[in-house]
């Protein structure tokens, strides 16, 4: 089959990011704003309703073949992150980078990083920092994934 050269190559496709919330909290203004400016930075952002189950997040990450999962947490829902990280691992999605945004106490941040979370973005972090961080993680994820590509 002849390839249509007007189509772009794999590497130039925009980062795909899942922006979601787990647990009980439903304050999703922050995650919607982040989703909007990731979009404005040229990324493809899959949005969800709040209160996703761990298994749902894994399923979404898998079906949508995302590079980065961003979890917004305002109250205590970040305490579920270790479970999410384990579930992603188990589903064979270890290349997917996970970031958390919101209110996370210092002690818990250490716990999240130990569980494999790539970065925690605290309130007040500028949008440039978030965009650059997510873009860099997406590139890493894709590189790791391309390493195991079928070609």
């Amino acid at each position: 089959m002849e390839r249509n050269m007007s189509e772009v190559q794999l590497s130039s496709f925009p980062p795909r990011v899942l922006v979601t919330k787990i647990g009980f909290d439903g304050h999703d203004r922050g995650s919607r704003i982040v989703a909007s400016f990731l979009r404005d930075a040229g990324m493809e952002v899959i949005e969800t309703a709040p209160w996703q189950e761990i298994s749902q997040v894994v399923r979404l990450a898998l079906e949508e073949d995302v590079d980065v999962v961003g979890v917004s947490s305002l109250s205590a829902d970040h305490l579920l992150m270790p479970k999410l990280m384990a579930a992603l691992q188990e589903a064979g999605l270890s290349h997917v980078k996970v970031v958390v945004g919101g209110i996370v106490p210092d002690d818990d941040e250490v716990m999240l990083l130990n569980a494999g979370v790539a970065q925690v973005f605290h309130p007040g972090v500028g949008r440039d920092e978030i965009v650059e961080g997510v873009a860099a993680f997406a590139a890493q994820a894709r590189e790791q994934r391309n390493g195991e590509l079928v070609t």
């Binding site: 647990g23 009980f24 909290d25 209160w51 205590a76 829902d77 305490l79 579920l80």
Partner: peptide, 17 residues
């Protein structure tokens, strides 16, 4: 508790929350 806000009893949610 947020579990109450979402409409659940304590025995049907993740205990860590």
């Amino acid at each position: 508790c947020n579990s109450v806000y979402r409409g659940y009893d304590a025995d049907e949610v993740p205990a860590e929350l």
